[in-house]
Design a binder for these strands. Structure first.
Lengths: 210, 210
DNA sequence: AACTAATTAAAACATCTGTTTAAAATAACG
DNA sequence: CGTTATTTTAAACAGATGTTTTAATTAGTT
């Protein structure tokens, strides 16, 4: 494997586990069995490495999500909100196969990106991959046309928060759940449970605001 | 004002804004206009300072939340989920008055605590303030008795995620919303919008899992 | 094989981190 | 006032951080 990919793989896991600020380049390079200077040689800086780790996922995910959402928008029957959110499941789970050792860390990284480093990652994603967002809001608008644009803005961000936060602490939660309910569970099981939740949240009746 | 409080106030704002890892003691002490060594003198270590910042909020909030939830549980009429979640509003907004310069940073700090520092803050809160959690689950069980304990466990964590995540990035979101919809909005307005969302999410119909 | 370009390696860089030390200043109390 | 105790100060500590430099190695090309 190339040095570049060895760095990306190690950074991926460590960033997801300990955050961007919480992971040093020395941890990454020693985990990857490469020289410390290799990061700055291949990526320029730590910030660029973070972008590269995220881009590896987004470049794979973005077209798939857009395709799935486009399919829903063009369907004959009016889609339900459950349909819209379910469109995310397959592409997200597909990331896991495409990863070597089990589950992908993408959603955990997304959670890190929202809180770590004062939102520079949010800027990166919304400017580099804007189509995912616009297609998504379009799909929701078809499924729930009564919802005003502003109300939708908020509910979509609530949803984003639910998903990202849940996945970024999913390991700990799965551990607790398995202890308390001795119910075998994995990432797919968590997703199965969160979809009805967010669908119901977005579909909540509209309330007046003064 | 005492040195101890000057440190707590400065740390509060900086921790909320840049995270626990992202804030150095030197930033805190220079913002607070006190000597660097004062932190270790008064609190012992940075970790203890973090606990102190959180305890200041929790010691104020915890009894109020428990009282509000107890009131709901003992009411004659069966409370709705909306009632249960609304019980959080007043105590949370009360934190703002009790703060000098505007809105409290409590929920932002809570968000930091879940992602930063590998969940040691979650351990701290659940062990130091367990009653809030048990009272809350009791209230939800009364409002929605059909929900199994496991399903409730998940939905409450989804809710936690929604709230915490939303509030930890509320400033940025409010900015965006005000630009796009020129609608004056503050923290209270965001809370007003998130309550129906989470209430609907928790109240979502039960789905079979294999 | 010989020369050039790309990569790796070890070391040093300056800066920042939390914490500790020891002296100075202030407060409290008999 | 004089004597403790408490608090503040400046300085230094040891270690970690991202980045750069310079030399050694490897790969690619003619």
């Amino acid at each position: 494997m190339s040095t570049k990919n060895k760095i990306l793989d190690a950074a991926d896991v460590l960033f997801a586990d300990k955050g961007f600020n919480g992971t040093s380049l020395r941890e990454i390079t020693s985990q990857a069995n490469v020289n410390l200077a290799a990061v700055n040689y291949h990526f320029g800086s730590k910030k660029e490495l973070i972008k590269a780790v995220m881009s590896r996922y987004m470049d794979e995910l973005s077209p798939q999500l857009e395709a799935a959402l486009a399919l829903i928008c063009q369907a004959e029957e009016k889609p339900s909100l459950h349909d819209v959110f379910s469109a995310f499941i397959e592409p997200l789970l597909y990331l896991n196969e495409f990863k070597v050792n089990g589950t992908s860390t993408f959603l955990q990284l997304l959670g890190r990106g929202y809180t770590d480093s004062q939102g520079f990652l949010r800027w990166f994603l919304t400017t580099q991959y804007p189509n995912v967002f616009t297609h998504f809001t379009q799909a929701v608008k078809i499924a729930y046309p009564e919802l005003s644009t502003e109300e939708m803005f908020w509910r979509l961000h609530f949803t984003m928060g639910t998903i990202v936060f849940t996945m970024s602490s999913s390991e700990a939660l799965i551990d607790i759940a398995q202890n308390d309910f001795d119910n075998k569970l994995d990432i797919a099981g968590v997703i199965e449970r969160v979809i009805p939740y967010v669908a119901a949240g977005v579909a909540a009746p509209i309330t007046k605001h003064n």
